[in-house]
Nucleic acid binder design. Sequence first.
DNA 1: AACAAGATGCGAAAGCTTCCCACTCGTTCG
DNA 2: CGAACGAGTGGGAAGCTTTCGCATCTTGTT
Lengths: 137, 137
Amino acid sequence: MDNQQIKGAGLKVTRPRAKVLSVLQGSRRRHLSAEDVYKELLINGEDVGLATVYRVLTQFEEAGLVCRRHFETGQSVFEINRGEHHDHLVCIRCNRVVEFADALIEERQRAIAAQHGFRIEDHALVIYGVCAGCAKE
Amino acid sequence: MDNQQIKGAGLKVTRPRAKVLSVLQGSRRRHLSAEDVYKELLINGEDVGLATVYRVLTQFEEAGLVCRRHFETGQSVFEINRGEHHDHLVCIRCNRVVEFADALIEERQRAIAAQHGFRIEDHALVIYGVCAGCAKE
DNA sequence: AACAAGATGCGAAAGCTTCCCACTCGTTCG
DNA sequence: CGAACGAGTGGGAAGCTTTCGCATCTTGTT
């Protein structure tokens, strides 16, 4: 049950938190901005504040429940963390996002970081391009 | 001479533009935010507006003279474009930036994009970690 | 030297995100 | 089960970076 995840993060199980989590889990799109989540909640008749959505998303991020991504759209997007690392292909026309994982790239990154004396904390690889659908038009 | 680069971009050679370019070229740090450039100009006694710095940097970016990078610091940073593509290692403690290029990673990216029907326009790989200096402390 | 197009600087405004604070709710303990 | 306390919330104000609008000033040209 969702609530266990919230409890596990040391957070009280409140209505806003449960609802934010369920929006993230139930949405067809995997990547939602805070605004997206907020609007979805309003549509569902929930009476939450945008500030709360931001707060909750930040707490979820700290708890490892969600990941925050910074694509070049000017706003952060959030997705539930399924544990498996992956990177993103983003269509600059329609904003479609495709996820991928590549062991070889990960491997090279570790090598490069080591070579420069860095201990990796995180990394973000985003490929921007035009997807097949948009290329046709 | 610098002015040729500005002219080549189809821009008038004005004092602010020449100065912004020279700050970018003369700075020891390779990655500067708009604010950094602005402050540097003020220190040098130049009377420019911050809006102009932003405008000029954007024009330089469009002209291919500089590249804009979006690290996760909340503000964009700019560096002069030396033509050779590269990616970045950023220290999350001291913000030190190390550049690197890896043919194997580039190669894999092309393969992955092709595989998903994307035509690559651009990409950004940033590895966040702790550099050797900061790890010691 | 004069002119038109283009640049600039300033302040105002936009967009995203966080802060503040009085009020409300969830949890714990009696 | 209910009271009490600390945590959480909503709404608006405020913060930051970046952009816009416009009157004024420059550049490059004739």
